[in-house]
Structure formats: C-alpha cells, structure tokens
Simulated scan of single mutants.
Amino acid sequence: MISETILISSLDALPQAAAQVRAAMHGHSIICFEGEMGAGKTTFIKALCQSLGVPDDISSPTFSLVNEYRDAENQPIYHFDFYRLNDVREAEGIGALEYFDSGYLCLIEWPSRVEALLPPERLVITLTVTGPSSRELKIEN
C-alpha cells in the first residue's frame, strides 16, 4: 500500500492540495473520502472538481445520493454522499454499481456505507481535523 500525507494549513491551501491529489488519482476512477462529519470532505471535493475544470457549483448530494458534473473535457464526474443511506440496497437502487463500473471518476463520501459494492481498486482519501481551518489529508491506494 502506498501512502502520502498532505498538510492543509487553511482554505487557501486547498488548490495546491487538490493538485497533489489529482496527481495521485492517475489510473483510479473510484476515490473514497473518509473523515468525521465536518472534516471537509465536500469542501475538498469542491476544490478538486474546480481543479478538474468543473464549471458548475459543487454541492453535497446528501439527499439525492449522487450529483453529476462535467470536467473540462466534458467527461462525467459522479459525486456520491452515502451518509443518509439506511441500507446498501438504496445505493443499488440508484445504479451505484453501474456508476462504479463506468470507468468515469466517482468521488464517494461515506464509502463505508457501501463497502460491499466498492471494487478493490480504489484510492482512499482520509481527512482529519487538525485545527479550526487546518486538515491532514492522507492518500492511500
């Protein structure tokens, strides 16, 4: 397992951290975001999507479970938030397996709620709160 840690000192450091994560994403379409509530998963995904050229407003798909964006090359990016999931069958019901198998980028918040559906090949990003606006970001694959 390869691991890398990025220290994010403030919101101003997000674009640089997103660029580092983009480099680590090469060859991965499933990116899982772990971290406690309020750790900044959605905020980081916004910065990552901006670095990928997504022109849309990025928001958490807390109630819809999935949002679709388009990157600078008009390729789909799927953003999932499984926090409110009561059962893995709900994810199956929205076609999560088809999204995961599509080969397109899937950014997944609260992936542990759908662990049984996730392919073994994935990148895991763990965000840990280290201060009011600072975070530690750990990348594992």
Rank of each mutant, 00 (worst) to 15 (best):
M1W: 09
M1P: 04
I2E: 15
S3E: 15
E4N: 10
T5E: 15
I6R: 00
A13N: 07
Q20K: 14
Q20D: 12
R22M: 11
A24C: 14
A24E: 11
H26M: 11
H26P: 02
H28W: 09
S29G: 07
I31T: 01
E36C: 05
A39V: 04
K41T: 01
T42S: 12
T42P: 06
F44C: 02
F44T: 07
I45T: 11
I45N: 03
L48D: 04
Q50Y: 09
Q50W: 07
P55I: 09
D57Q: 12
S60K: 07
L65W: 10
D71Q: 01
A72S: 14
A72V: 15
Q75D: 00
I77L: 15
H79R: 00
H79C: 03
D81N: 09
D81A: 04
D81H: 09
F82I: 09
R84M: 10
L85V: 00
N86K: 12
V88F: 04
R89H: 14
E90Q: 13
A91Y: 05
I94L: 11
G95S: 03
A96Q: 02
Y99I: 00
Y99P: 07
G103D: 08
Y104F: 15
C106M: 04
L107C: 08
W110M: 09
P111Q: 09
S112P: 12
S112W: 14
R113K: 15
E115Q: 10
A116R: 10
L117Q: 04
L118E: 03
P119K: 08
P120F: 14
V124A: 14
I125A: 02
T126M: 06
T126R: 11
T128Q: 14
T128P: 05
G131M: 02
P132L: 02
R135L: 04
R135T: 05
E136C: 08
E136R: 13
E140D: 13
N141A: 15
